[in-house]
Design a protein around this nucleic acid. Structure first.
Lengths: 160, 160
DNA sequence: GCGATGCTACTCGGATAAAAACTGTCCGAGTGGCATCGG
DNA sequence: CCGATGCCACTCGGACAGTTTTTATCCGAGTAGCATCGC
């Protein structure tokens, strides 16, 4: 059960966009990739997922790039995780209770969901609740102010 | 982020062992695999993980097999999930904040952990807490009594 | 001088390969029961 | 009849392939700015 690295990348990029894009400018993939030494093409793939989810908006052309689609306070960590990992939960009940020994049971016994699936779903719900309670704005507040400034200074050095 | 199917298998096997092994007998892999139409060899691999974690005990020999190492009330879902999936969390912080733009930052800035990692860890902790709050005994109570009896009857038909 | 127009460089976006993890399979070491043999 | 002993069938346990998911890469479609050309 390994979460995609794209989640970490996406969150750091959201934070960076919140810092750099304050003046309304778009940031291209190449610059975000350079900011964290990530493979640019694959990072682009992750950012596209965020666009599809409505978290980012993309602009084509020579001065194009990505920027946040809405205020950081309205982007939860759950939004980002779901955008990258997909809507399905980690645990998927295959209903093996109905196979083998359970094949001869009356169908009405399987009307109520499998207790194991319920328990696992409950845990994942708690996980989602915690993720939904945190926003990108919270991450901005928690990060040291120097990081924001360093990122902004670094961006100037990258202008060719 | 897909959880291994072995988790579902292991939980169903723990439930089955609690039902069948009441009289102290061990249940071999082949019988558990037949009970859910699972690949026997791979299921055996999962059961070995449970043995390593101290959840099951295995007995070799002609009347051998697996049985619960302790009472169902003392086996949490977290125990089983950790045994199959390993102790590491789903999210692993790669500290990309220290690379690229952050490479020139003073080391003391990275003493406190990455805010993103903290937030993700908090969510996973909530997930673990829910899993730890549920035991195999709770699953036994939640399952319909007919399932227990059916499994016991079915077992008799499997004796060669 | 001013506007329209064609061009170029740069961007995103999706289709295409390599790598890793998960899933599935096989065979060997070890053990306990059981039949046999001897006393 | 009772005990010791050797054998055998059955079990777990770890080493070996196949398949799906993840990671990484490349190239094409499209767009915005800019220089050029014409009026």
């Amino acid at each position: 059960m390994k979460m995609s690295e794209g989640v970490e990348w996406a969150l750091h990029c959201c934070l960076t966009l919140a810092w750099l894009g304050k003046d309304g400018g778009s940031v291209p993939t190449a610059r975000l990739a350079a900011a964290f030494e990530l493979p640019p093409a694959y990072l682009n793939k992750c950012l596209q997922l965020l666009v599809k989810a409505g978290i980012l908006v993309s602009t084509a052309g020579v001065k194009g790039g990505f920027r946040l689609a809405r205020a950081p306070a309205r982007i939860t960590l759950l939004d980002v995780v779901t955008a990258i990992e997909g809507p399905e939960g980690a645990f998927r009940c295959a209903e093996i209770r109905q196979r083998g020994a359970g094949a001869s049971a009356p169908p009405r016994e399987f009307v109520r969901p499998c207790g194991i699936a319920v328990a696992m779903r409950r845990a994942e719900t708690a996980w989602r609740r915690e993720l939904a309670a945190q926003t990108v704005a919270d991450l901005l507040d928690a990060a040291p102010p120097s990081a924001s400034e360093r990122m902004r200074c670094w961006q100037l050095t990258q202008v060719h």
